[in-house]
Amino acid sequence: MLNTRQIMDIIPHRHPFLLVDRIEELKPGIRAVGVKAVTYDEPYFSGHFPDEPVMPGVLQIEACAQVGAVAILSLDENKGKTAYFGGISSARFKRKVVPGGDVLTMECEIIKRKGPVGVGKATAKVGDEIALTAELTFVIN
C-alpha cells in the first residue's frame, strides 16, 4: 500500500489536484487500485452543485488516470517521467459520486503499450456499484 507522500513521489500532482488518497494494490506496469474518500471540503463542491454536491465526472476520470499513472510510472524505466492524457474513450457514468460517505475505489489496468503510448482500462466503484468505466490513453514523456 502507498500513502499520499509515496504517491507524490511517483506522480507530479499536488493538492488540490491530487485525487488519490492511497494505493491499495500495485503491480508496476500492469495495474493499480487506488482509493479516494469524497469529502465536503473538496473545493469544487462549492459550485458543483451548491444544493446537491456531485463529484464532476471529469474529476472521476482524472482520479482514475492518476491511479493508472502510478501503475505505469512505477516502472524503473519511467521513474521521474510524466504520463499525459492522449485520449478518453468509451466513458460511461453509472452513478453519482457524492461527499459525506462515498469512497471511490479506482482500478486501472494497462491493457496496451507501444513505446511511450499506452491504454488503461479504468473502473471506479462506490462499494459494489460501478460509478464509471472508461479507456484512457496516455503518453509518457
Score class of each variant (00 low, 15 high):
L18E: 10
A124M: 03
N141W: 07
G87K: 06
R113I: 02
I11K: 00
E109W: 00
V98T: 13
L18D: 10
P50Q: 09
K125C: 11
A131L: 07
I7C: 09
G120L: 08
I30F: 11
V126A: 07
L132N: 11
N3Y: 07
P16H: 02
A71E: 04
A65T: 09
V20P: 00
A71G: 09
V97Q: 04
L132F: 08
M8E: 15
I61P: 00
C64F: 08
V126C: 13
M106P: 02
K112I: 03
R22G: 01
A69R: 03
T133K: 08
P28F: 11
G86D: 06
V97F: 06
I61C: 02
K114R: 15
G57I: 13
K79D: 09
F93P: 06
T105H: 02
V98I: 12
T39E: 07
E77S: 15
G100C: 05
E24C: 10
I7K: 03
N3A: 08
F17K: 08
P50T: 11
K27E: 15
A83F: 01
K79S: 15
G120Y: 06
I23C: 06
T137G: 14
L18I: 13
T105Q: 08
I111L: 05
V35H: 03
V70Q: 02
V103R: 10
D21C: 07
Q66I: 08
P43R: 02
N141F: 10
N78D: 13
V20G: 00
F138C: 11
N3Q: 09
K27S: 14
Q66W: 06
I72Q: 09
Y84K: 13
L73C: 13
P56W: 05
D9W: 01
A69V: 13
M55D: 01
A32N: 05
E52S: 08
A83M: 13
G29Y: 04
P53V: 07
V20A: 00
G118S: 13
N78S: 14
Q60L: 11
K125P: 01
D51G: 14
L136G: 10
G101R: 03
P116V: 14
A91G: 05
G86S: 15
V139H: 10
N141L: 14
D76T: 12
V54K: 02
G57R: 12
P56Q: 09
R31N: 04
A91K: 04
V98F: 00
G57S: 14
A32H: 04
H48V: 10
A131M: 07
K125Y: 01
A71D: 07
L19G: 00
A134T: 08
E129K: 15
L2H: 11
I72W: 04
T105S: 12
A83N: 10
I11N: 00
P116G: 02
I7H: 02
F45T: 10
E77T: 14
I10S: 08
A83V: 14
I61D: 00
L26Q: 11
G100T: 02
L18F: 04
E135I: 06
G34A: 07
Q6M: 04
K121T: 03
P99H: 05
F85W: 09
D9H: 10
K112E: 15
K112L: 12
P50M: 11
I10T: 15
G115F: 07
D41G: 05
G120D: 07
M55V: 01
P99A: 10
K79Y: 06
E107W: 00
P16F: 01
D21A: 06
